[in-house]
Amino acid sequence: MADDGDVAGLGKARATAFLAPALLLISVFLVFPALWTLYLGVTNFRLSGSAARNPKFVGLDNYINALSDDRFLNSLGLTIVFVFASAVVGQSVLGFSIAWTMTRVRKPVRAVVEFFVLLAWIIPSSVTTFLWYALLDRSNGTLNAMLSTGHMAWLLQYPLQSIIVFNTWVGTAFSMLLFSSALASVPPSQMESARMVGAGTWAQLRDVVFPHIRGHALTNTLLITLWTFNTFTPYLLTAGGPDDRSNILPIFIYRLALNDGALGQGAAISLIMIVINLVIATVYLRLLKERKS
């Protein structure tokens, strides 16, 4: 009994019964859709028409089509710019700057700032996109009123820039929280040692703060990169348009699979996206490991 690992003494049957509901849910909602996507990716399955009733096996055609499709490549390019600008630069830098500034202000100020930053994160995205609509609207928008820019159609003129700013605004709270706790772990005596020899803010950041929080920064970048890579919310603002100019990958897949009905093609691109996610995650984890050894 002792070496079969059955510490609780439940016996195989009852142990399985305990696990079954969770396994069932995982199978239905995770494993099956994943396998189904894999299957769809090698068929010409469509939302309607004859290919919906009788999907045909098309091998790697979908993947080859995707990789040679200008729309896909355009979308991949937009996604890379979007992720880099709004997550790696926008959320990280802004989140760190706020966290750093907040270590030097009084507690009430800090509480108020953190409250508002967090608010952007926790309000449902349908609500925040509506607020941004109101801000960026062409005829009655707040931004136009503030900047006296007349009837500037921000979402049409600068669609990618708009969703980059929007996503930075939404996601900064996470980086801010993570960096706040990271900064709290920097030993005060080391900061003071640097101050004692006359180190300015930049030298303190370079010599004390950054080396201490590098691990946190990597984790943060990994998480927000993946989240931003997969986010669909900008669809609510620009729907990928105009003219595909904000057509990041998740939106591209959605429009391709559900608007155009090309489910097989969409599934293939989803898989490509998963592979990209895995590559990003692996690279970051490697970097993290290197740090530790």
Binding site: P187, S189, Q190, E192, S193, M196, V197, D207, V208, P211
Partner: peptide
Amino acid sequence: AMVFQDYALF
């Protein structure tokens, strides 16, 4: 110059 209790080495 100050030497801290925990030495505060980098």
